[in-house]
Design a protein around this nucleic acid. Structure first.
Lengths: 171, 171
DNA sequence: TAAGATTGAACGGTCAATCTTC
DNA sequence: GAAGATTGACCGTTCAATCTTA
């Protein structure tokens, strides 16, 4: 919940949210927060954070099981310094290794280890089951379609904005 | 993005997400993450974090501009130890003060200061404008309704689950 | 000079332990 | 013993500075 009061709309540029928008906003904030916390806690039962998991997924989806740090940063929306710390921890835990990049000596690859691959293959079904149990299993097809439409729109809007281009530079 | 691959459904208990679910899930993860980061950054331009903001809102909505720590914890879904640290910082910054509770000597109130009230009144319109620009201004009425329905459902589902009752104890 | 990437310090969140009062 | 709340240590994220190669 992050807005103050409901007020009547005054024209083409309303300063407040309508009642419907306000209740939608509060539902979104509460629901998405609870869902994120829940998935994080469930993931911890397998010894992973959601960041760990997402990186394992991204790497496992590439043919060579490897991705440049900068590409991984863009794919996951993680700031590059955060990703660097993250990969350091995952290297310590045996999920990935770093390899230098032949064509560009500034570049580094994050490469999935066989242990990392085993881990993602083992854990993924549990995670999918959670997403199904807590989200898609509760929604009808129209809601699934709406969910996609809403957040595709939000994403496009933000990617087109100057503020986002600015934030790109950190990735 | 947090699921592995798309596979055909096998019966009543599908182990994977359908293509439609998968694309909805990825859109949600990307869009909600970008939106949260954007709102956080915009809020920082006013010298507040989103947590600061939410607490100021909650306190400003009560008649006496005060709330017990435990109530505030439940309202914001913040773990009680996190809330305690948070209020310590906000007290340092002059937004709130702590007051002991007459009827229950274990209890503490977080109380909005006049500076805190001025701050929320000043900042709220900017925040509402951002939520409008980045979310509701891009959606049609049916999408707003769907957003509420989806996350009300998610919230109800999680609140009813044993895992959530367990997490309650930290609040 | 810009791009790719890393580093360390500071900050915020989490966890377990603690303290007081009911 | 349980409820309300706090504390300090640890861990992850952010920010600014840095380093290397293009």
């Amino acid at each position: 919940m992050c807005t103050v009061v409901v007020m009547p709309m005054t024209g083409t540029e309303p300063r407040w949210l309508t009642e419907g928008e306000q209740s939608a906003w509060r539902a979104y904030l509460a629901g998405s927060r609870l869902l994120a916390h829940h998935l994080e806690r469930e993931m911890q039962r397998h010894g992973l954070s959601m960041s760990d998991y997402e990186i394992l997924v991204r790497l496992s989806e590439t043919p060579e099981h490897r991705l440049r740090m900068s590409e991984l940063s863009r794919a996951t929306l993680l700031e590059k310094s955060r990703l660097s710390h993250q990969i350091t921890r995952m290297e310590r835990d045996g999920f990935v290794v770093r390899e230098s990049c032949p064509g560009d000596r500034r570049g580094q690859f994050a490469v999935l280890t066989s242990f990392g691959l085993e881990t993602i293959n083992r854990v993924a079904p549990f995670h999918v089951a959670e997403v199904r149990e807590r989200l898609f299993g509760l929604l009808d097809p129209a809601q699934v379609t709406a969910l996609r439409g809403i957040f595709d729109t939000v994403e496009s809007g933000l990617r087109a904005s100057p503020a986002c281009v600015e934030a790109e530079s950190a990735r």
